[in-house]
Design a protein around this nucleic acid. Structure first.
Lengths: 168, 168
DNA sequence: TTAATTTGTTAGACTTATTTAACAAATTTA
DNA sequence: TAAATTTGTTAAATAAGTCTAACAAATTAA
């Protein structure tokens, strides 16, 4: 864990770290060119970013060399990716957002949500993933029906409970 | 509805419009000073922003006069506020985020979420607000319990259903 | 109705992130 | 290995949004 908690990085700089980490996973080494292509910016912009991130101790980059994340840089990249993943999951699996739109949204929101929101959203997805019986929750199916039709359907379970009460 | 759909405003400019609209609701007239105080920037910054927003046809501002939103400006302000409101609602009522943190998060996310995410989130909140019997959904109570204790509790309804099946 | 205070404006500077253009190093290929 | 190509670097320019500082207009108080 890094000593300095808050590097106060901009969305842009977080993006550089995130993408560098992603590239490293694929290719083992990361060059200016790769980052430039992935982010859709010119290599001179990448250079400027790397300079700034170097000064903050988040990347290592020698002239004409490969780009490496420091452990602090890796830590931040990991956090951003985690935020990205949970947001994408929520948007696609719960809200049924189209994949491409969900991706766009997650790529922006990943830089803004608080630790608390990340934590609670994570717990929400854990909660939804399966109930104690290992089933997807009924309410989510009902919500998807509501999205499709605009109509709320009666909760079967609740209906059962009501029936039981009536029988008493 | 404005003819020009996409004014491609920055978060900052959207914030100016949003806050101008909020101030107008309270005070009927809006001055540079009010905006400056609310956003925590110097009045020279407000001036620069108003100039830029004027050029885009979103505000009207004569030297030393009051600040007014045009109908296009109002429309954008309304959209931003709507996004803000639904996000805040979701964060506080579903995820149980602390009010202050939720506010911070909503104030950032309101500038980034897509139309689709806004729509779906709105529907989600409509869905959750009440079921057909006018009750808050059981699953939300169970989620709050999960947040508190870290333990999933058995869904009573599902239990009932299971019992019924066994009886058959 | 002057003087003091508040509010608004302008010009110029700074920061962040980008670009283009020129050039330099590294790599490929002939 | 020399030439061609790709990749990386630097300097200078641009744009957005902010600030400070100096000043101007409007308002309030004496």
């Amino acid at each position: 864990m890094s000593i300095i908690e808050n590097k106060n990085l901009s969305s842009n700089m977080e993006d550089y770290l995130e993408k560098i980490a992603a590239l490293k996973k694929e290719n083992d080494v990361v060059r200016v060119r790769d980052i430039s292509q992935l982010l859709g910016v010119k290599s001179s912009s990448v250079n400027a970013a790397l300079k700034s991130l170097s000064k903050k101790g988040l990347v290592e980059h020698e002239k004409y060399g490969y780009v490496k994340l420091t452990s602090d840089g890796e830590e931040i990249a990991y956090k951003v990716q985690s935020r990205h993943d949970i947001l994408l999951k929520f948007l696609t699996k719960i809200l049924s957002i189209d994949d491409d739109v969900a991706l766009q949204d997650a790529c922006k929101m990943e830089h803004t949500i608080s630790k608390q929101t990340f934590t609670k959203l994570t717990k929400f997805m854990q909660f939804v993933e399966t109930d104690l019986d290992g089933n997807k929750p009924e309410w989510l199916k009902r919500f998807k029906h509501y999205l499709k039709t605009g109509r709320k359907i009666r909760c079967k379970m609740r209906k059962l409970a009501t029936e039981k009460n009536n029988r008493r």
